[in-house]
Design a protein around this nucleic acid. Structure first.
Length: 1046
RNA sequence: GGGCGAUUAGCUCAGUGGUAGAGCGCUUCGUUCACAUCGAAGAUGUCAGAAGUUCGAAUCUUCUAUCGCCCA
């Protein structure tokens, strides 16, 4: 049955994918040669809620190329797939789903029930991305698909695995080694999701905002002389003030101010440093006084030069507060509303006043103080801001300026001209609300403004584990070619990014106030009042002491040892534990005894409710997916892995953390090479995003053009380190390339190239052909094979793709297929047989070499062209240029091709009708040319559409001249050609030639060039100059003859 | 503000010191038995600008301009 005219991707891809599946073709170790080296790649786990976008398609295409290439070369290959559990994103998706289907909310159903819902969602919807990756052709070992939450408590059937064990074990070990600690720190708090997030999950966005200026009155009616000087030291303003002017973009945080700071060198405020000022908001009778202190942080040239210090709600202020021992008052609840808990404002403010005056207070007490006045309690932070501004302004404590002040921005009025009536703006005073560009932090998922918040969190002490991660990459960057020592990051630029980040690393906050994730394996019980094992008591206001252990049983053992008995009760949460302790202590107190640990009452303990950052688990991806902490066969075989292919946007999130964690846990780098690729953008260069609506959905593209076209496009554009701008016309172009290849097979099939009587064709070199054309194409094949291997070895994916494109289309289809036609129709059965064999071989090579980039169409054609197993397991060739290139055949074919091109060019420019076969005159010609002409006359005639080739001494008048290497031909086109046009054509060529010769001569006449340039360059230049000069002479001769006619 | 990168044909981009390239688009011609998702031919460049190093610069150095990304 004859082949269809085009490849039907939609129909074939599914069938081929099924065949691969059925053959288990991508299982770890499939097609490995005896004693093969391992080659393993970890997929960057996509988010389980995710669907395939172009970035994934790009990332996975590159991985698949490497993996298929290695598999065909007989490596013991593993491509490990899987997804991560994406704490925030998944919780968000499931909560939204609950709301949509009008089910009880997360909080209503409680933690356990909610997690059940999440698992349910995962099993029905979490497989999306796997199906999509399969559509792309990703040759992962799907039987090993991993998940970062596998094996967690509550995981349903089918979600077993030990990733959870690995995560917990690492946490416990790192905790015991002192690499993980808990502390009350200022963290980025997401008020929407009510969890801490890492600074990498914060997007800083510039937007026009406002800066308010307020007066903080000095305490006790104090005044000072405020002097403002210009750059030359001249006084520009001098006035008596009873206040200090403060600018802020977040007035609601004034309620938690602990001090006002000025720079120590700022003379304007020197007289009042050490004095107190009043926070101008809240009930008048109980306003707080705060000290005026000095710190290096305030910039005297910015605003008034004085800065309010709110240690609990700003990172810079926090540092100042730490340095100056300033209390840090927390103002908001987890949802970003002003606190409504605790004692009435009067009491809290009075206590805060004592503290400001020097009274001792614990961090816990300070945290418990709610300094939000009743009027603002419970308000959303932005609502509170508006109220604070309004109240201060109403009281006349805003800094006032004329209405035309340019700092007011759009709100500023223009100065009135005298003839206009009313109050001129210069006399009208308005509150100074500066309009300016403000950088605000936003949660990258929630898109709400992030609030710096003082909370208890867990941290990895990254400074303690960063060293080896830096060393390994330093080693890798310096290693020689071919070595796998250390870890090499490509391109080099991204190594710089890596170094820069790790050298300035911050502690990593790993706790999240979510439910979906690995719950922190720490239980808290009340601390004993003394270290003395027999004298310890539990006090009413006991601190909590942590017990970190991989399981409750282990924790329980620790608790027994600590409390010296086993009456321990695991309760729901801190509140319940607290209640029980209160009960115990008050009851025992009334009995006249402080409870000791031997009393017959259960000690309440509770588990830390927080979960670990998803990146903490994906940081263990390399070892976790291979079965660690068990000592598995796979771990021994495939770890450390070979290459990590990933986008530059997760160098910090993931790559750096994997480096640190693998080194910290198993003391071994996770991979020897990291290939960092760029971003896929739309055709205008914009980042693809849903909100812009410029996303190209890879699945839609695959539906329309086929997976191979999408893959080839991405590969051809994968120049290292450059963003790719993707357009559908490009994809269509490479779909056409597939069609071209398809039709080459159609041609071969029609010519019986695949009919073999002696069994399956071997992949290795089939014969030693006699025909020059056959020798030549085999040499070209060897060249491209070397090129492809060299390109892939260097991760130059685009070079591999372009080399193959040029070879298949430009060499095989444009020339070899055409040149083979006369041979296939030869009367000599040996020539026919040899050509069929060569043709089949060459096309097979195209399939093999293209397979890693275009797996589907090549697999399909492989099946069409013979019955010999799957192409994805075919042997990758190793023949070399030195084996297959025949210099003479090369030279001969170049000559033939250039002659045919020259004739076609003349015909084209002279508008000789295609159908018209013309006569070709051979004028002078050297020996090599004569031989080449003799041996290939039929080819030349056919491809250049020549009727006869005759020898002549001189060209007739009015013939078009065709200079070739070693001689000249002519096309006698009397009556067909336009003499003027031919003259113009020749003159144009001559002009170009003269310019080139000028350049070449200039170099050759320069003695310094001859002296300094390498010999082969000089030689090349000389040859080229000679050749050009010869051609010039021929063209001149031709022009002369033309002149005779005219 | 700090860092990284880009600027090459109409468009998208390759090109690490030695003859400026590819794909797409464009123009002309073409129903020859693989392919019109095709074939043949053609046009198109101050390699952002300036200075320097070099026998020789798109390529190396410095500066300038414009644009982008990351980090504060």
């Amino acid at each position: 049955m004859p082949m269809e005219k085009t490849f039907n991707a939609a129909e074939s891809e599914a069938r081929i994918a099924a065949a691969w599946d059925e053959a288990n073709a991508f299982a770890a170790g499939a097609n490995a040669k005896e004693g093969a080296e391992p080659f393993s790649v970890m997929i960057p786990p996509p988010n389980v809620t995710g669907s395939l976008h172009m970035g994934h398609a790009f990332n996975n295409t590159l991985q698949d190329i490497l993996v298929r290439w290695h598999r065909m070369r007989g490596f013991d290959t593993l491509w490990q797939p899987g997804t991560d559990h994406a704490g925030i994103a998944t919780q968000m998706v499931v909560e939204r789903e609950l709301a949509r289907t009008q089910q009880p909310s997360r909080r209503e159903m409680g933690r356990a029930a909610f997690l059940e819902k999440v698992w349910e969602w995962k099993s029905t919807s979490g497989g999306n991305i796997r199906r999509q990756l399969k559509r792309l052709g990703a040759s992962c070992d799907w039987s090993r698909e991993a998940f970062t939450m596998s094996g967690a408590p509550g995981a349903p059937e089918g979600e077993d695995g030990n990733f959870h064990d690995a995560v917990i074990k690492v946490f416990v070990e790192m905790y015991r080694k002192g690499l993980i600690y808990r502390g009350k720190r200022l963290v980025n708090w997401d008020p929407h999701f009510e969890t801490a997030i890492s600074d990498l999950e914060v997007e800083n966005i510039d937007a026009t905002g406002h800066m308010w200026h307020f007066r903080y009155p000095l305490a006790d009616g104090e005044t000072y002389t405020y002097v403002e000087k210009d750059a030359d030291g001249n006084t520009v303003l001098e006035e008596e003030r009873d206040y200090i002017s403060i600018a802020t973009t977040r007035p609601e945080t004034m309620l938690g101010d602990g001090a006002v700071a000025v720079h120590p060198s700022d003379e304007r405020y020197a007289p009042i440093v050490g004095k107190y000022c009043e926070i101008p908001v809240g009930p008048k009778e109980s306003r707080r006084l705060i000290p005026i202190i000095t710190d290096e942080y305030p910039d005297p040239d910015f605003g008034s030069g004085a800065v309010k210090i709110t240690g609990a709600h700003d990172f810079n202020d926090h540092a100042v507060a730490e340095r100056g021992g300033i209390p840090k008052y927390r103002l908001m609840d987890t949802g970003g509303a002003m606190r409504a808990d605790g004692a009435p404002y009067d009491e809290a403010a009075a206590r805060a006043q004592e503290i400001a005056r020097g009274a001792e207070a614990s961090a816990a007490e300070i945290d418990a103080l709610n300094l939000v006045p009743e009027a603002y309690r419970g308000l959303d932070r932005f609502e509170a801001r508006a109220r604070v501004v309004a109240d201060i302004t109403a009281e006349g404590l805003a800094v006032m300026v004329p209405a035309w002040d340019p700092r007011l921005g759009k709100a500023a009025q223009r100065k009135a001209s005298p003839e206009e009536g009313g109050i001129p703006p210069e006399e009208q005073l308005v509150p100074l609300v500066e309009e300016k560009l403000i950088t605000q932090p936003f949660g990258d998922r929630s898109k709400v403004v992030i609030e710096p918040m003082l909370t208890d969190q867990w941290f990895v002490d990254t400074t303690k584990i960063v060293g080896p991660a830096l060393d390994e990459v330093r080693k890798g960057m310096a290693r020689p070619e071919g070595s796998t020592e250390g870890t090499r990051i490509l391109p080099e630029r991204d190594a710089k990014v890596y170094f820069h980040w790790l050298e300035n690393i911050e502690p990593w906050c790993i706790s999240r106030q979510l439910w979906w994730g690995h719950q922190i394996p720490v239980w808290y019980g009340p601390a004993l009042s003394s270290d003395d094992p027999d004298g310890g008591h539990i006090l009413y206001d006991a601190e909590w002491v942590p017990f970190c252990a991989p399981s409750w049983d282990d924790a329980f053992e620790q608790m027994k040892a600590y409390y010296r008995h086993d009456e321990i009760k695991w309760v729901e949460d801190e509140a319940e534990a607290m209640q029980l302790i209160e009960g115990i202590t008050t009851r025992l107190r009334t009995e006249g005894a402080i409870r000791d640990t031997h009393a017959p009452v259960a000690i309440p303990v509770y588990r830390d409710p927080d979960v670990l950052d998803t990146w903490f688990s994906s940081g263990l991806w390399p070892i976790g997916t291979l079965g660690w902490p068990d000592d598995t066969e796979e771990l021994r075989r495939y770890f450390p892995t070979s290459v990590l292919v990933t986008g530059f946007d997760i160098i910090f999130f993931w790559v750096a953390r994997m480096m640190m964690m693998q080194l910290a846990v198993v003391d071994e780098k996770p991979f020897h090479t990291v290939y960092v690729h760029a971003l896929v953008r739309d055709e205008k260069g914009k980042k693809m995003s849903k909100s812009l609506g410029n996303v190209l959905d890879p699945i839609e593209q695959i539906d329309e053009y086929g997976a191979d076209a999408v893959r080839f496009t991405l590969t051809a554009m994968a120049a290292m380190g450059r963003d790719l701008k993707l357009s559908t016309s490009r994809i269509a172009g490479y779909r056409n390339f597939g069609t071209k290849l398809w039709n080459a097979f159609r041609f071969a099939e029609m010519n019986d190239a695949f009919v073999q009587t002696d069994g399956a064709r071997a992949v290795h070199v089939p014969c030693t052909p006699g025909a020059t054309v056959n020798k030549w194409i085999m040499g070209e094949t060897a060249k491209v094979r070397e090129e492809v291997d060299a390109a892939l070895n260097a991760y130059r994916f685009n070079d591999a793709a372009n080399a193959l494109y040029g070879f298949v289309w430009g060499k095989v289809c444009d020339w070899y297929l055409e040149l083979s036609k006369p041979l296939l129709n030869s009367d000599d059965p040996e020539v026919v047989q040899e050509t069929r064999t060569t043709l089949a071989w060459v096309l097979d090579q195209c399939l093999i070499l293209l397979h890693p980039i275009m797996p589907f169409i090549t697999e399909e054609l492989w099946g069409v062209a013979g019955d010999r197993g799957l192409l994805c397991h075919a042997d990758w060739p190793t023949y070399q240029v030195s084996d297959l290139v025949d210099e003479n055949a090369d030279a001969e074919m170049s000559w033939v091709i250039s002659l045919i091109e020259a004739v076609r060019s003349v015909r084209g420019e002279m508008n000789v009708p295609n159908g018209l076969e013309v006569e070709l005159l051979q004028l002078e010609l050297d020996e090599a040319g004569r031989t080449a002409l003799d041996r290939n006359a039929s080819l030349i005639k056919r491809l250049a559409r020549i009727e006869t080739i005759t020898e002549a001494d001189t060209a007739p008048k009015g013939a078009a001249a065709i200079p070739v290497k070693g001689g000249t031909f002519a096309l006698p086109l009397v009556g067909i050609i336009d003499v003027g046009a031919e003259k113009a054509r020749l003159e144009k060529s001559l002009q170009k030639l003269t310019k080139e010769i000028g350049g070449l001569k200039g170099r050759l006449d320069n003695p310094k060039f001859l002296e300094s340039a390498p010999d082969d360059v000089v030689e090349e230049t000389r040859e080229l100059a000679d050749a050009k000069a010869a051609e010039e002479a021929k063209l001149r001769a031709a022009l002369d003859r033309l002149a005779e006619v005219a």
